[in-house]
Design a binder for these strands. Structure first.
Lengths: 205, 205
DNA sequence: TTTGTGTTTAACCAAATGGTTAAACTTTGT
DNA sequence: ACAAAGTTTAACCATTTGGTTAAACACAAA
């Protein structure tokens, strides 16, 4: 009866991986439990044996996704690095995360729009990201005359926009730039530098 | 038997308006024909009398939305205006469109991801937007040393990102900026200038 | 008045879908 | 060898949902 080391590595993870794929691709409404079972290589009965309902399963997947969405970025922003380095690290980290999870943004945003309150709570906990810290930091540099006056939250929104949007509109971007899947990822890799430059050029005096 | 002036203004438009609302809010999979009928103040039978199927109805709505998504922006970009004015007009037009259709972006992006080929065809027809024109324009100014070297498509993507993303992530933005619905729209109104400045500051020498 | 179109009502259908159940088989740890 | 948990099979259920049908009604034009 002792609860030995549960060897979860197999079925449960297969289910989660399959569910992630299907939910990300089709959204919660478009996803079919049968598809998830198939993709996991098991049957519906077992699927419900592990996760009682579709909602429960979706919840799990979303929680996992929510954690990734707000990456280590928070610590970067509240760090003591010089602003430009903050920007650079932020953008690099963010785009890296997205390169490893290209479909994360649309998945998250859909849930945010479907169920704003809960989704936001799951992403941010209950504390706002530390933009106050950024705000102060920027205010100082503005006073010193080193950068143009910008609002902290605006800078944040702009950076996030520039990082995430291309992944959201990926098919459009690929069509416009005539790139295939591989080339798109390379493009985003290059984009790191380009965005950093774009942002810094925009605020520096 | 003569086809007099069909007074479409009533039922058909009511349906389209209702369908637009429901589809935008719930997506095609989450939308219920019954809900659309209810919201239009009619019954399911009549709904199917006007639009044979859910898919057909969705198609209509998407076509209408697709046209708005690529606004008069195209003509602006291929115009002979000075670059900075182009940027200004582009951003203003775009954000204005979005202020009048705040849920358009997520709706469009979902369809693009669900059905990239068709969706893109419906949005752009078969011609790419005139970024070549922008490309030339920029190349000239770069050569003259008036602006920093930027790629045309990158400038475009950046501008579009900065305009659209806040609407995509609206609940998040509102939560971070502690704004209610009205204040959010004001914020976006202000954002026009802010984005224009951000972009221009970034490319000017 | 007639006729056709718009509209409602209400019952109905078939398919899809989330979820359940029970019985049998397999695996694994004790 | 035994028991418990994992897994399959397959039938089954209730509900939802897109869509249909037919009969009756309203109304405007011919």
């Amino acid at each position: 009866m002792a609860k030995e080391i549960k060897n979860d590595t197999s079925t449960e993870e297969k289910i989660l991986a399959a569910a992630k794929q299907v939910f990300m691709e089709k959204g919660i409404d478009g996803a079919r439990m049968q598809d998830i079972a198939d993709k996991a290589g098991i049957n519906k009965a077992l699927l419900h044996y592990y996760f009682r309902s579709k909602d429960k399963l979706f919840e799990m997947i979303f929680m996992e996704a929510a954690r990734q969405f707000l990456p280590k970025v928070t610590s970067i922003m509240s760090s003591e690095l010089p602003l430009y380095e903050k920007v650079e690290k932020f953008v690099n980290e963010y785009i890296d995360t997205l390169l490893q999870n290209p479909t994360l943004p649309i998945f998250i945003l859909n849930e945010i729009n479907r169920n704003p309150k809960d989704a936001i709570k799951k992403i941010f906990g209950n504390q706002r990201p530390p933009i106050d810290k950024v705000e102060e930091h920027i205010a100082k540099l503005v006073k010193k005359g080193e950068i143009k006056p910008v609002k902290g939250y605006e800078l944040m929104i702009n950076m996030v926009s520039l990082c995430i949007f291309p992944f959201l509109a990926r098919p459009m971007v690929q069509w416009i730039t005539k790139t295939n899947d591989e080339e798109f990822l390379q493009l985003m890799e290059l984009r790191k530098k380009s965005v950093v430059r774009f942002v810094i050029d925009s605020i520096k005096k």
